[in-house]
Amino acid sequence: MDTLTPVTEHLLRDMALPEPDSDSKDGRGRVLIVAGCIGLPGAVLLAANTAMRAGAGKLQLAVCRDLAIPIGIAVPEALVIGLPQSEGGSISRTAAETLASPAERCDALLAGPGMAEDAESEHLVAALIRAVGDGAVVLDAGALAALRSDPALTRHLPRPAVITPHAGEMAKLLDRERAAIEAEPLAAARAATERFGTVTVMKGARTHIVAPDGQAWCYAAGHVGLATSGSGDTLAGLIAGLLARGTAPAAAALWGVYAHGEAGRRLARRHGGIGFLAREIPGEIPAILADVLA
């Protein structure tokens, strides 16, 4: 039987988060988030706010041109890059050239929240991964399609990319039935890690995390209230923010999963169970991180 380590605050205390190397925002890293489409602009906000709440120092958001001004007003902390868009309202593949330099210079790249799952996104994400320099990478939602087309895409990276699929997305990644993924989520996470060379976060009622060296963890203390629209976008942003600070990929995944789950538990206590909103998750994160390290 597979050995699974529980994700607890005691575990995390043995992998303390990096301290900023200066009192400058540059010391906490730069996140580039490439996300959203005309139909799902809110995913950008959720990921962006959580990345900042995780302690990232600088934030860049790359979005469809029509979203740039409203997103910039909604997230005044960010530098916003307006990109060409397709007729269907997704970021155009032609944006790859514009994003090559920001991708190369960022400390953490997050692609996928709210992105359309189409050929435009697939081409763009592949180009971004090839352009990224020493920065860490998180792939979520629509960005995962690029791995289906090229399973070796992330293997050249200096650090393992982190992927965050739910059961439906994992079924597409592995070309299996969703029911099979839900029946054996750990086996699915291991298969994805082996195929793509990633740190795999298999989201679910029990979230399984598998690293390329074979280590596996399970977080089972989340709350059903987290099964709500936009929750996954906050988790992806949280992991990206931790990576920007210099956290190793597996540690960032573990801290992110724990803090996300604990945020759900705290919100549920205040709101009476289900009914809290994904937009309320980011505000819980700084206190949770501080409490673990106290």
Rank of each mutant, 00 (worst) to 15 (best):
T98P: 06
P286C: 09
P185A: 00
V224Q: 15
E169A: 10
H208I: 04
A167H: 11
H260V: 05
E184G: 00
L267V: 04
Q60H: 08
I129R: 03
G241Y: 10
A294M: 13
E19I: 12
W217D: 11
L67A: 14
A253E: 02
A236P: 01
E169S: 05
D66A: 15
A221C: 14
E120R: 05
E77Q: 12
M202P: 11
A227I: 13
A211S: 13
T200P: 07
H208R: 09
E120M: 05
A48I: 06
Q85L: 15
P84I: 11
L289Q: 11
L242W: 05
A191G: 01
V75A: 02
C106D: 12
I239R: 07
A205H: 12
A216Y: 07
V80T: 08
A111V: 07
M1W: 08
L40R: 12
L109F: 05
L157D: 10
G237R: 09
V210L: 12
A143K: 05
H260L: 02
L110G: 05
A252G: 07
A191T: 12
A111G: 06
A183M: 00
E182S: 01
R53Q: 13
L17I: 11
A248N: 08
G272H: 07
R148K: 15
P113Q: 03
R178M: 13
A145G: 15
G29Q: 08
A47H: 04
L238T: 06
I163C: 12
A145I: 14
A268F: 00
D233E: 06
Q60Y: 04
A180P: 01
G230K: 11
G36D: 01
D2A: 08
A250C: 10
A167R: 01
T200E: 05
V125G: 01
V201Q: 01
G225P: 00
T154F: 04
